[in-house]
Design a protein around this nucleic acid. Structure first.
Length: 584
RNA sequence: GCCCGCAUAGCUCAGGGGAUAGAGCGUCUGCCUCCGGAGCAGAAGGCCGUAGGUUCGAUUCCUACUGCGGGCACCA
């Protein structure tokens, strides 16, 4: 505390140095604030009803260091209903909050913010909690009871996965992990478009390549087609002796199997694993399409016109009705989409999330309409997220060509350039609704302009400190063997220590918010802040004893803080599917 | 034409109605006899696209406009 703060009228309670204070997370602080408001209302020092208290009391990390550990705008929210100005409300709450054990100081600032500083002991207790909870720290039950299907990538099995797929591979998988961390039950699903004319063109292309014929104009021309053809010939040399249509189908099916297996292999190396691979063919073969039609007919939104069967999606905000069965009797792709949605719901999912590329934004209204036509509330049962394009830059030029696939860039091209961790991290780091330009020169560099290295480096640096501590005999190597009784959190009084603890305390809220908003990029941005917070702490606060110096309680307390920071970085990177190396 | 998204520092981008709008890069200045310098501290750099509206308060929400990207099917 500085003299300036004293002069500004800061009121400060007695310091609490004793060990054993309750920890004070922002959630707990919010509860204390609510209690203070309640008691003020009961004491009639605030002219309000209990019902006027907001459902959620906002407790935030102030941007400015001078504003204490936590800030709340509760006085600004209540002042109107209380018929007074915000500062007056704050003045009522200030002394009540000061009585709370663990709150060290409460300052009224600006238009009526309450800036709260915690005692070192109470704030430092958090390190003990984090170490004890381990991997569970940050997990919550905010989405408990929800069963969510998240469908992403869903590429045709007619070629390698490209950059757009790759964005979803990283973001979709991270989103699934984040939703699980918030307590939801999640299935990751990949819809295989293994039906229709694209498959036939694919088969014909591979067949032509195998026979040494020119590939059809409207076929697939990537180098991988020839590779597939050669593999098939090795597997089954007799295939060329088949005749006509039979041979084309045989090539198509063999190529399909190989290409799908390749997609699965590539995704697995990319740390993205699906619970369900759902084939469009099985959708038709299992009768799911008929069941879907039946469901929609029951709801009364199906009609015949011009020899075709239509779904009246205009009943629910679509631009035009959509054909399900064409006049020639063929099913449309849209028919599969409707059946697939109905099928997902019948498999018990409360919510179906679709991650789609920007070129599919026209699907949003019609798929929401499908949900409505099936009798569901689209607001609850379906959510469509649109992701913008990804481009790569190298040497100041856009990368357009791929060795494997001609003029599309593949997932493997990106991984070859920068590795799995950097690829995943950089794809997840940005909100999906803005176009993304990846600079490969930056991502493959080992400098701090490469965010994934910055975060991983912080983790490795902490791991190193703890290794060294174990070697010096300060503390056991495994945190599970640490003696909690020897941790005195009240010693963590440095500004940097308080800052770092405050950041760590925010982690559960960051995860819950990322889950609620379906925005995993918040995790990475947060981790970068934690890394900065750690580096600042490390720079200012010596953790280990020098040379032959005696081991102090402060050394031990700082190691607890290190372990807590390491745990949070580890947990956060885990949600992104990015490794947390012990050494780099 | 209609629909969706975007517009914030020289560049790439964060910012869920709150305080003096942030980070990295780039430019400039400092910090290693000591735990990982892949780090830290500091400086410079902004009518938050334009104009209205809602609000005690708008970069944030709404409307219009301008500019950029994407999309319109009895294709898959």
């Amino acid at each position: 505390m500085t003299d300036t703060e004293e002069n500004n009228g800061l009121i400060r309670a007695n310091r609490h140095h004793s060990v054993g204070l309750p920890s004070m997370t922002p959630q707990e602080l919010a509860q204390k604030i609510e209690l203070a408001v309640r008691s003020a209302i009961l004491a009639e020092t605030l002219a309000l009803e209990i019902a006027d208290i907001p459902a959620e009391i906002v407790v935030e990390r102030p941007k400015n260091l001078d504003h204490g550990d936590w800030a709340t705008n509760i006085a600004l929210q209540l002042s109107k209903k209380a018929g007074t100005n915000p500062r007056a409300v704050a003045e009522v709450l200030q002394p009540l909050l000061l009585k709370v054990l663990g709150i060290d100081a409460v300052k009224i600032a600006g238009p009526g913010f309450l800036n709260i500083s915690l005692s070192a002991a109470s704030q430092g207790e958090l390190a003990r909690d984090i170490v004890a909870k381990g991997l569970a720290f940050g997990r919550s039950d905010t989405l408990a009871g929800q069963t969510i299907n998240i469908e992403f990538i869903s590429a045709n099995p007619t070629g390698p996965l490209h950059l757009g797929h790759t964005r979803w591979a990283a973001v979709g998988d991270a989103m699934a992990r984040v939703l699980e961390a918030a307590g939801a039950k999640v299935a990751r699903e990949f819809y295989i478009n293994d039906r229709g004319v694209q498959m036939d063109k694919f088969g014909a292309s591979v067949e032509a390549a195998a026979l040494g014929n020119p590939i059809p104009e409207d076929g697939y021309h990537g180098a991988y087609i020839l590779t597939l053809a050669q593999e098939i010939l090795v597997q089954d040399p007799e295939i060329v002796n088949l005749a006509g249509e039979t041979r084309t189908v045989a090539f198509r099916e063999a190529a399909y199997k190989l290409q799908l297996a390749d997609q699965q292999r590539v995704l697995s190396t990319f740390n993205t694993n699906f619970d369900v691979w759902y084939s469009e063919r099985t959708l038709h073969e299992s009768g799911a399409v008929d069941r879907g039609f039946t469901k929609l007919r029951e709801q009364g939104h199906v009609y015949q016109e011009g020899g075709a069967t239509w779904l009246r999606t205009t009943d629910f905000d679509d631009d035009k009705d959509r054909v399900m069965i064409k006049a020639d009797g063929e099913l449309t792709y849209f028919a599969s989409d409707t059946a697939y949605y109905v099928d997902k719901r019948s498999r018990g999912f409360d919510l179906c999330i679709y991650l789609l590329g920007a070129d599919h934004h026209g699907y949003v209204n019609r798929l929401r309409a499908v949900a409505a036509c099936a009798g569901d509330d689209p607001e609850k049962s379906i959510q469509l997220l649109i992701g913008q394009l990804v481009k790569m830059m190298k040497g100041g030029q856009e990368v357009r060509l791929s060795k494997r696939a001609g003029n599309i860039i593949t997932l493997e091209d990106l991984v070859d350039e920068v590795g799995v961790d950097a690829a995943r991290y950089s794809l997840i780091r940005y909100p999906v609704d803005s176009p993304l330009l990846l600079d490969l020169d930056l991502l493959s560099s080992n400098t701090n302009d490469n965010p994934v290295h910055y975060v991983q480096y912080a983790h490795a640096r902490i791991a190193s400190v703890i290794r060294n501590a174990a070697e010096l005999g300060v503390i056991p190597a495994q945190t599970s063997n640490w003696d909690s009784a020897k941790f005195n959190p009240s010693l963590l009084t440095d500004v940097r220590e308080g800052q770092l603890l405050g950041l760590l305390a925010d982690y559960p809220r960051v995860v819950a918010t990322a889950a609620e908003l379906r925005e995993p990029h918040r995790i990475s941005r947060y981790l970068e802040e934690v890394a900065t917070g750690y580096h600042r702490f490390y720079d200012a606060c010596r953790v280990l004893p020098h040379g032959d110096d005696e081991i102090t309680e402060l050394n031990v307390a700082r190691l607890w803080l290190c372990a807590a920071a390491r745990q949070v970085i580890f947990n956060g990177l885990d949600l992104l599917g990015v490794s947390a190396p012990e050494r780099m």
